[in-house]
Design a protein around this nucleic acid. Structure first.
Length: 203
DNA sequence: TGCCAGGCCCTCTTTAGGGCCTT
């Protein structure tokens, strides 16, 4: 049984949307949560070996000059592999971050095992009254801690960690006698919107 | 220089289309 309150919450900034189209990671941020407490963090810019376009510079605040001085993706990802070793993973819109994690790990012949849960999918299930499920909206909607920085990897990962803890607390309120595990969260996330209330009541 | 993706999920669905999310 793997409790969901121990995890690595991660976020990538990238050159674009698709590693299959040649996009690379330019920054990774992650926080380590153990028993619901943030106990460690990881942040690094990484040089993708190509220039990023003006949209990405503007969107993230990460400039080509900053990346020119950064370590290579390979060096950073090796350090991150050590950081996340043995932990389950969480991201906001996992389908995006997992693509880049897999692609960058593949370049260093590394792979991970374990669960990869998604705070976006979970939000669509357990916060159906939220105006939308963008990370920034959910931080405001749930009045979660933030320092006003968005679209930087560690800031986004930290906000996602607070969101994750909040979501686990909401689930625990609904299921006071149930262990909130990764297996349970992925079962909830798989249900349709219409099914999820009945599923929670059945537990 | 400009352009690019894809998984999830709803519905006016399933022989499909389009919005939501992520950079």
């Amino acid at each position: 049984m793997q409790l969901a309150n121990t995890a690595i919450v991660l976020d990538f900034e990238t050159t674009g949307l698709s590693p299959d189209m040649g996009d690379r990671a330019i920054e990774i941020g992650a926080v380590k949560i153990v028993d619901g407490e943030i106990v460690d963090s990881f942040q690094a810019l990484m040089n993708p070996g190509r220039r990023v376009n003006s949209f990405i510079e503007s969107y993230t605040g990460i400039s080509n000059a900053m990346l020119a001085e950064a370590e290579s993706c390979e060096i950073v990802m090796q350090r991150f592999a050590d950081f996340c070793q043995g932990f389950n993973l969480v991201a906001h819109n996992t389908s995006f971050d997992k693509k880049f994690l897999d692609a960058e790990f593949k370049r260093i012949n590394h792979s991970y095992s374990g669960h990869f849960a998604c705070s976006l999918l979970l939000s669509r299930r357990i916060n159906q009254d939220a105006p939308n499920h963008k990370l920034g909206t959910l931080v405001e909607y749930h009045q979660l801690p933030n320092d006003g920085v968005f679209h930087r990897a560690l800031a986004d990962a930290t906000m996602t960690a607070h969101l994750w803890n909040h979501q686990l607390a909401l689930l625990q309120q609904q299921l006071p006698n149930k262990a909130i595990t990764f297996e349970l969260i992925n079962q909830i996330s798989k249900r349709s919107k219409a099914q999820v209330s009945r599923y929670l009541l059945s537990l």
